[in-house]
Simulated assay, not measured.
Amino acid sequence: MTITLSAAPTRIRAELEVLDERFGKIAGDEYVECLYDGGRWLEGPAYSPAWRCLIFSDIPNDRLLRWDEVSGDVSVFRQPSGYVNGNTIDREGRLVSCSQGERQVVRTEYDGTRTVLASHLDGRRLNSPNDVVVRRDGSIWFTDPPYGITSNYEGHKAGQEIDGCHVYRIAPDGALTVVADDFIRPNGLAFSLDESQLYVVDTPGKHIRRFDVDGDQLIGGEVFAPCEAGMFDGIRLDDAGRVWAATHEGVHCFDPDGTLIGKLLLPDVVSNLTFGGPKGNRLFITATNAVWSWLLTASGAPQPWAAPRE
C-alpha cells in the first residue's frame, strides 16, 4: 500500500543556530524537505543502500514504513510491526529492529522472515528494546528502557521482570550480556569512528555519556554533553566524529571535544536521525509525525556494511 504525502509544505527554510564557525563549514542546503507527515510518533530511521530506501517506525500505529529514494513514495513495510522502535542495518544488509511490543531484538532475513536475536536475560523478559547499533565484529548493542511496557501507547502495558534499565551486547554467537547497568533510561547509542568508544544517551538524565570499549565490556562512562533543550533521544556520528543528537527543539551537533557547535531547529520534537543517500551526506530526521531530510557537506560515519571511504 502506497501512502500519499499530505498537503503540508514539502520544504521549509533551514533555521540554523551557528554557535561555532566549525558548524558553518558543514551546513548544506538552505532548506529542509518534508518527506512524509502522516505518522503519529515516528522513530528509528535506518537507510538501506541496497534497497535505496529509508525504513522508519510509526510506533503507536504499530507499523514500519518505507520511503523510496527513487520514487519518493511512502509505503507500509510491515504492519503489525510489534511496535518496533529503533532500527539499523547489519553487515549483511539485513534490518535489525527493537520490538517494544514483543520485548525482543529481531532481524529481518532476506526472504522476509524474522529471527529473534534477544528476548530474555536469565529467564526474564527484556523491558522493551529501544535503539540498536551493530559493530564491525558482528556484535549487536542495544538499550532497554521500559517505554513499551509503561502503557499501551507504544506497546503493551506490563511489569518489569528485570531490575533496572540496561545496555546490552549480543555476541556474534548469540550470547546476551549486560554491559552497563547504571542508567535511568538508556536510549540512543552510537560508536565512535574506530569503535573504541560508545556514546549512550540517558534520556531522563538529560545527557550523553561516553564509554571506552574493551572487547565485550564498557569502561568509564563520563558525561560527554548535557542537553539544553528538553532531553536527548537518538544520536549518530558523522565522518569527522561529530555527534548529532535529537532534542526537543531540533538537532544539536557536537564537536568530538564535546562543544555544542550548532543547531538545526525544527517545528516538532525530534526523536531520531540517521545519515544516508548515495554519498552518505543526507541527514534523515524523524520528528513527531514527520520525516525531514537535510543535505549536508558532511557525510555520516562509515557503516558496518560499507567499505571504508578513501
Rank of each mutant, 00 (worst) to 15 (best):
I89G: 04
D90Q: 02
D90R: 05
R91Q: 12
E92W: 02
E92D: 15
R94W: 01
R94I: 01
S99T: 07
S99I: 00
G101D: 09
E102Q: 12
R103W: 08
V105Y: 08
V106P: 00
R107H: 09
E109W: 04
Y110L: 15
D111K: 05
D111F: 06
T113N: 13
T113M: 07
T113Y: 04
R114A: 06
R114L: 13
R114Q: 15
V116Q: 08
A118R: 00
A118F: 03
A118Y: 03
S119R: 13
H120Y: 12
L121Y: 14
D122S: 14
R124E: 12
L126W: 08
N127V: 04
S128N: 08
S128E: 06
N130Q: 06
V132K: 04
V133Q: 03
V134F: 02
R135H: 15
R135S: 13
R135G: 14
R136I: 04
R136D: 14
R136G: 07
R136F: 03
D137F: 09
D137T: 11
S139P: 09
S139A: 15
I140Y: 09
T143A: 14
P145E: 11
P145R: 13
G148Q: 10
I149C: 10
N152P: 07
H156L: 13
H156D: 11
H156S: 13
K157V: 12
A158H: 11
A158G: 12
A158P: 06
G159Q: 12
Q160F: 04
D163H: 12
D163L: 10
D163G: 11
C165H: 15
C165N: 15
V167T: 14
Y168M: 08
P172V: 10
P172Y: 09
G174R: 02
G174Y: 05
A175F: 03
T177Y: 02
V179M: 05
V179E: 05
D182I: 01
D182V: 04
D182E: 14
D182M: 02
F183H: 11
I184K: 08
R185F: 01
R185H: 10
P186T: 00
N187S: 11
F191R: 07
S192G: 15
L193D: 03
D194A: 11
D194H: 02
S196H: 05
Q197R: 15
L198K: 03
L198F: 07
Y199H: 12
T203K: 10
G205P: 06
K206F: 00
K206V: 01
I208H: 07
F211D: 06
F211K: 08
D212G: 05
V213S: 00
V213E: 01
D214P: 00
D216Y: 03
D216N: 10
D216P: 00
L218F: 02
L218C: 02
L218P: 04
